[in-house]
């Protein structure tokens, strides 16, 4: 079991820490329901629809009746919204054919409703290790569908990503996280394309030590991801705090330009770092602050 390093922030408000209701301690269904306005939640494609993965049982893996993705429609701050929550306890939040299509279809339907006069925002609760290995190719194909549907919806209504837990958001779904209008993360949350263990097994322990939690959180952790502008809002793991952050993000609406569209800025950041002598994680924000896009370098 991984655990984040203890918070070093001297400004930590312990009274708030002690009175909070942990968001990540809830299961995915409870998290989705807790975000929505009281009494408005209505689950789509629930467990009794029994749309489980057909690929797990032949491989000797017990399936889950909702395939680990919970889609709940309702209202958020009075406005129509759909919350799509990944259950991290089932297959490490791994996305397969069915769960991926549930996410993609929910985003597409929100886009359709938005075009038809019912503006519907989406919230993605991204606790996932990425594509489920048992459904590798199908899972990857659905990630493409998720990204495509996300791009369709974010032009019309905000798509808000939330990464709350220590599992984090990795693999294919981290690409979807990068496309979100606003990305909300806790200090315990993590975001990365390849997870620490994948990097260690592929490139060796000298490249990344997956047992060094301080190192991992100094690079993938929520505080660092917010400091370096790869996530937008750092929140306490608390139901009320996360719900307020999501509603605020919804109220900001659709920006003129999304983070993933600022290609020049992202390219300048890559160029500012020498892979042979990378900056210390604590210095990265300062290095990137001075990375200025070259003139004429437009997306």
């Amino acid at each position: 079991m991984t655990s984040p390093p203890p918070p070093r922030n001297e400004d930590t408000d312990w009274t708030v820490m002690l009175t909070r209701t942990g968001f990540i301690e809830l299961d995915a269904r409870a998290r989705a329901t807790a975000l929505l306005d009281d009494g408005t939640a209505r689950e789509l494609c629930g467990p009794f629809d029994r749309i489980e993965s057909p690929w797990l049982e032949p491989q000797g893996v017990v399936p889950q009746s909702d395939d680990g993705v919970i889609v709940v429609k309702g209202r958020l701050g009075g406005r129509p919204a759909v919350v799509i929550a990944i259950e991290q306890a089932f297959q490490g939040g791994g996305v397969g054919e069915v769960s991926g299509v549930k996410i993609a279809a929910a985003l597409s339907l929100a886009a359709r409703d938005s075009r038809d006069g019912t503006p519907t925002a989406a919230v993605l609760l991204l606790e996932t290790g990425g594509v489920r290995l048992q459904e590798a190719n199908l899972g990857l194909a659905t990630v493409a569908e998720v990204c495509s549907a996300l791009l369709e919806l974010r032009a019309l209504q905000p798509v808000i990503g939330v990464i709350a837990g220590t599992l984090g958001c990795f693999g294919g779904m981290s690409i979807a996280a990068g496309l979100c209008t606003t990305l909300i993360i806790t200090a315990e949350g993590r975001l990365g394309l390849d997870g620490p263990q994948v990097i260690e097994s592929e490139a060796g322990i000298a490249e990344f030590d997956a047992s060094d939690h301080t190192l991992i959180w100094s690079i993938d952790g929520g505080a660092q991801r917010t400091r370096t502008g790869l996530a937008d809002v750092l929140v306490l793991d608390d139901v009320t705090a996360i719900r307020s952050a999501v509603i605020e993000a919804m109220e900001r609406g659709v920006p003129g330009e999304h983070r993933s569209q600022r290609i020049g800025e992202l390219r300048a950041r890559l160029e500012a770092v020498d892979p042979a002598a990378p900056p210390a994680p604590a210095d990265l924000a300062a290095v990137w602050a001075h990375a200025v896009p070259q003139e004429g370098d437009q997306p």
Partner: peptide, 18 residues
């Protein structure tokens, strides 16, 4: 009425009762 509880997570189980 029917009921659904639990998750297919380590040390846990999911139950659908109809």
């Amino acid at each position: 009425r029917r009921a659904h509880v639990g998750v297919v997570g380590s040390g846990d189980l999911e139950i659908l009762m109809t």
